[in-house]
Amino acid sequence: MTVATPTQAPAPAPQRAGRRGRRGGDGPGRGRLGRLDHAVSPYAYIAPFFILFFVTGLFPLIYTGWVALHDWDQIMGQGAFVGAQNFVDVLTGDDFWTALVNTVSIFVLSSVPQVLAALAIAGLLDHKLRAATFWRMGVLLPYVVAPVAVALIFSNLFADRFGLINTLLETVGVEPVRWHSDRLASHVAIATMVNFRWTGYNALILLAAMQAIPRDLYEAAAIDGASGLRRFVSITIPMLRPTMIFVIITSTIGGLQIFDEAKMYDQYGRGGSDGQWQTLTLYLYELGWTRADFGRASAVAVLLFLLIVAIGLVNFAFSRRIASEESR
């Protein structure tokens, strides 16, 4: 549970270097085979990961780009080379932009409250509690429930006419919300499902980081008369920055790929009669699987990839600035 403070960390490094240097001195005794072993075997050790990554990661990525440049029917396969035509078709249609706005809107509505709530829950769990494991596992429970089951439960909550929420609203005399017609309302409903699933998961990650914060910092602050809230804001949150960045990046990637919740939100799974909650991944699915046009679907996939890379770079620059601020 103890963590090395920054001043301790660099100390062991020279030692290790020294030992390696001595082992290098054995070289002439082992001969060429030994040197070869030294030079090649590390690559062999890491090769499985890279081979796997190539097969399951890089190859599909490049192949998608290849498909995007062709007329490509789902069943008939490869057709004529069409260059950038698929991209032009996608980018000049309204559907792509609607889907993009929906995706970003659902992403913002889910990620921001999610990280804040996760932080609050982790802060509460960081106290000394009775049956701590029970509470910690409890917040993870929504995460292990299958998304499809979550969607079924929430579709009963958010049904327009006879849903639980609208029934409650009507009993207190408030106008029912048109969950499946109004664009923003549908985004809120889907974001709620996403939050239900992911908040606990993020809370546990943040909790792990919180527990690694040296307790003496809190004690010192307490002696100086800092309140609980003050200690949370001035010690916990700054110490959590690297973990926060991890949480924000993973929830960004997840947020831009929202699919299950949006697909299960109504009976047709196409994102609403007017595309109210059609996300980019749903649009991709409709192009590829309903219209059998893998070419255009791949073009959307490539654009989505570029979007995630772009946002990832922004995130990276942002986190570098925070990290350098921290070391100052």
């Binding site: 494991t133 029970f134 596992m137 993870l140 429970l141 292990v144 429930v145 299958a146 499809v148 089951a149």
Partner: peptide, 25 residues
Amino acid sequence: TTRRRMLLATTAAATLALGACGGGS
């Protein structure tokens, strides 16, 4: 005991997830 309790909780959670999957897939 903590670890065993954890195991129990995990099993319970996993059962729930499996049960939930069974309906849809």
